[in-house]
Amino acid sequence: MTDEVRQALDRQRTVEITTVGRRSGQPRRIETWRYVAAGRYWLTGSPGARDWYANLVAHPGFTLHLDGHDLRVRGRVVTDPDERARVFGEIVPALDWAGSLASWTAGSPLVEIELD
């Protein structure tokens, strides 16, 4: 990954991703938020079901779109309760609108963006 791409990833909180539909097999592009915790990059959202998450569970490879760069990456779905608690423990307190840490840990999708 070039320095230019790394800088775009570091500064761009709102990102677009293209996943592969779990049932359709078709590309699905959406806008979502990127977070940083434990020195790594994550996708998550407030508690609830997300189609993009279900797509990544079925097909972990996806495209991360950053300032004119399209990166092929992998999503590592995080289900381990201890890891989820650690990561959300860094993300949620910084979000004044987020609600409780417990609700995020219990009900939010969590995917690590695995870069090459």
Rank of each mutant, 00 (worst) to 15 (best):
residue 68 G to K: 13
residue 64 L to K: 08
residue 14 T to I: 13
residue 107 G to M: 05
residue 80 D to A: 05
residue 67 D to A: 15
residue 57 V to Q: 12
residue 112 E to S: 06
residue 82 D to Y: 08
residue 96 D to W: 13
residue 13 R to Q: 11
residue 34 R to P: 02
residue 31 E to A: 14
residue 63 T to M: 03
residue 2 T to M: 04
residue 79 T to W: 02
residue 12 Q to F: 04
residue 82 D to M: 14
residue 108 S to V: 06
residue 26 Q to K: 15
residue 102 A to L: 03
residue 68 G to R: 10
residue 78 V to C: 02
residue 63 T to A: 06
residue 50 R to F: 14
residue 4 E to F: 04
residue 55 N to M: 03
residue 78 V to F: 05
residue 80 D to C: 03
residue 72 R to T: 14
residue 14 T to K: 11
residue 53 Y to H: 15
residue 43 L to K: 04
residue 29 R to V: 09
residue 44 T to R: 00
residue 78 V to R: 02
residue 93 P to H: 11
residue 109 P to Q: 03
residue 106 A to S: 03
residue 60 P to K: 08
residue 36 V to Q: 15
residue 64 L to N: 02
residue 55 N to I: 08
residue 94 A to D: 11
residue 28 R to P: 09
residue 85 A to Y: 01
residue 58 A to T: 09
residue 62 F to S: 13
residue 38 A to N: 15
residue 91 I to E: 08
residue 61 G to L: 06
residue 14 T to N: 12
residue 101 L to R: 08
residue 80 D to L: 05
residue 55 N to W: 10
residue 104 W to Q: 00
residue 90 E to D: 08
residue 104 W to H: 05
residue 98 A to N: 05
residue 89 G to L: 07
residue 22 R to I: 03
residue 17 I to Y: 05
residue 108 S to G: 12
residue 10 D to F: 04
residue 67 D to L: 13
residue 49 A to R: 14
residue 69 H to W: 12
residue 110 L to C: 07
residue 36 V to R: 15
residue 20 V to P: 03
residue 29 R to H: 09
residue 58 A to P: 05
residue 24 S to T: 15
residue 59 H to M: 00
residue 62 F to T: 09
residue 115 L to K: 03
residue 24 S to N: 05
residue 98 A to R: 11
residue 102 A to D: 15
residue 74 R to H: 13
residue 54 A to W: 14
residue 107 G to P: 01
residue 28 R to A: 14
residue 74 R to K: 12
residue 34 R to H: 09
residue 25 G to A: 15
residue 1 M to F: 13
residue 115 L to M: 02
residue 111 V to K: 00
residue 34 R to W: 10
residue 82 D to G: 14
residue 23 R to Q: 12
residue 11 R to N: 14
residue 37 A to C: 10
residue 69 H to E: 14
residue 93 P to I: 04
residue 81 P to M: 07
residue 76 R to H: 06
residue 60 P to H: 07
residue 42 W to V: 04
residue 72 R to W: 06
residue 82 D to H: 10
residue 73 V to E: 07
residue 94 A to K: 14
residue 85 A to C: 02
residue 40 R to L: 13
residue 100 S to R: 14
residue 64 L to R: 09
residue 19 T to G: 09
residue 93 P to Y: 07
residue 52 W to C: 02
residue 35 Y to L: 00
residue 109 P to Y: 00
residue 114 E to Q: 11
residue 71 L to T: 06
residue 39 G to M: 12
residue 35 Y to S: 02
residue 49 A to D: 14
residue 103 S to I: 00
